Simulated assay, not measured.
Amino acid sequence: MPREQPAIERQRQALGTRIRDLRDHALLTQEDFAEMTGINRRTLQRIERGGDPRYSQLVRIAEALGVPLANLVEG
């Protein structure tokens, strides 16, 4: 499998940071956020660290944070 381009990795890192910052701003723990989104806490940790989320996970994250999906992914 070919290695991803550094730009894509940076974008995923930025997305994870945005999600974590928004979650922190909402004063939500990862446990609470996992419960709200229906996404496993370990999966959320991976996403916040720059993992590659599924579209359905991004939709649930955006809804739980009260932000449009476009704003979440565009930064």
Rank of each mutant, 00 (worst) to 15 (best):
T17R: 15
N40T: 03
M36F: 03
I47C: 10
E63K: 02
A34R: 05
A26E: 07
R3M: 14
V59H: 04
R42T: 14
R10N: 10
R23S: 03
L28P: 06
L15P: 03
I39C: 07
G66M: 08
G51A: 11
R60I: 01
S56K: 06
Q57R: 09
Y55I: 12
T37I: 11
Q13A: 14
I19E: 00
L15K: 08
L44F: 07
G51W: 05
V67E: 00
E63D: 14
E48F: 05
T17M: 10
A14H: 07
E35L: 10
D24A: 11
R54V: 02
G38A: 09
N71E: 13
L72D: 09
S56P: 00
T29D: 06
G66P: 05
S56L: 05
G51I: 05
L58H: 01
P2W: 07
Q30P: 03
G38E: 06
R12E: 05
N40A: 12
L65E: 00
L22W: 08
Q57S: 15
L72W: 04
L22V: 04
E31W: 02
L65D: 00
R12D: 02
P68L: 04
L15I: 03
E63Q: 12
M1C: 06
A7L: 13
G75M: 12
V67G: 00
E9A: 13
A26H: 13
R10W: 02
P2V: 14
E31Y: 06
D52P: 00
Q5V: 12
I61G: 02
I19P: 10
V59P: 00
R46G: 04
R3I: 11
L15R: 07
A62W: 01
I61R: 02
L58R: 02
E35A: 13
R49I: 00
L69H: 03
P68A: 06
G75V: 04
P53L: 01
D21E: 15
P53C: 08
F33G: 03
A14Q: 15
I8E: 14
G16L: 10
L58C: 05
Q45Y: 11
R60M: 03
L28G: 04
Q57A: 15
E4S: 14
E48L: 02
Q13R: 15
P6V: 14
M36D: 05
P68T: 08
E31R: 08
A7R: 15
G66D: 08
P53R: 06
E31K: 11
V67C: 01
A62V: 05
E9L: 14
G66A: 08
A7S: 14
R46A: 14
I19A: 06
D32Q: 15
R41P: 12
A64K: 01
A70F: 01
R20N: 11
A26Q: 10
A26Y: 01
Q5F: 11
R3T: 12
E74H: 11
R42K: 13
V59G: 00
Q11G: 08
R54K: 15
Y55H: 10
P53D: 06
N71L: 09
G51S: 07
Y55A: 13
L65W: 00
R49F: 04
R12Q: 09
H25C: 03
E74M: 13
I8H: 07
L69T: 01
L65N: 01
A34V: 09
L22C: 04
R49N: 11
F33Q: 04
S56M: 03
R10V: 05
P2Q: 14
Q57V: 01
G50H: 10
D21K: 13
L27G: 03
A14V: 05
Q57E: 15
